[in-house]
């Protein structure tokens, strides 16, 4: 426990996020090597993460309500939302594709938002247990978070490739912008969140 209790912050040391120099510097002083302003913890991390998470959560609603793309095949086609697209994929029997789209478009962004909120709340209440698990969750979120852009890639690629008039045409709809904003905001939220707060809060309240 003693080793675990010992942190850079408690030792008055700050690690430069740019050049990785560990110096005993007061808060907000420039790094003696690269002049980067040094902070023991990311400043206003919780506020920023909350703000970004809230924005992402709000944008997730229109991203699902509005259709993301229109597939016109043989003159017939309707604008489809993400879930409707998944449903139509299931209808046509394309289970694997439906699973990929579902995970990338629904599970990952939603999971990120939920995990972020869980982490934020846990920091606020000073949860002392599951510290390692929470760190693992944070890493998982960072790794898989990038993959939620699959949908945006899909829409942009198809829109540019499938242009065959009434035979087959794919058009993006406004939902895709909201979805893109959700993905970007969650990535920023993950970046502004300082995982060190997880154990800070555990110690402070302990």
């Amino acid at each position: 426990m003693a080793i675990l209790d010992l942190t850079a912050k408690s030792s008055g040391l700050i690690r430069c996020p740019v050049c990785a120099l560990v110096t005993p510097s007061p808060e907000n002083h420039p790094c003696p090597r690269c002049a980067t302003p040094l902070h023991a913890r990311k400043p206003s991390s919780l506020q920023k993460t909350w703000a970004l998470t809230m924005a992402a959560a709000l944008l997730y609603i229109p991203a699902n309500i509005f259709p993301i793309m229109t597939v016109v095949q043989m003159g017939q086609g309707e604008p489809k939302t993400i879930l409707a697209g998944v449903a139509s994929l299931i209808e046509t029997g394309m289970w694997p594709l439906a699973m990929i789209v579902f995970i990338a478009s629904v599970v990952v962004p939603l999971g990120k938002i939920v995990i972020l909120i869980y982490l934020l709340v846990s920091v606020h209440v000073g949860l002392k247990t599951y510290i390692k698990e929470r760190i693992a969750l944070y890493r998982l979120m960072e790794v898989f978070g990038h993959w939620s852009m699959v949908d945006i890639f899909l829409v942009t690629l198809l829109t540019t490739l499938v242009k065959m008039g009434a035979l087959a045409t794919i058009e993006p709809n406004r939902g895709v912008s909201f979805f893109g904003a959700v993905v970007v905001l969650t990535i920023f939220a993950a970046r502004t969140f300082d995982p060190r707060l997880i154990w800070d809060s555990a110690h402070d309240h302990g």
């Binding site: 206003s44 506020q47 703000a51 970004l52 809230m54 924005a55 905001l185 502004t192």
Partner: peptide, 13 residues
């Protein structure tokens, strides 16, 4: 700062 400027984002949203 009491309130981060980041709160502008959810406000805009």
């Amino acid at each position: 700062k009491a309130i981060s400027l980041f709160w502008l984002i959810p406000f805009v949203v």
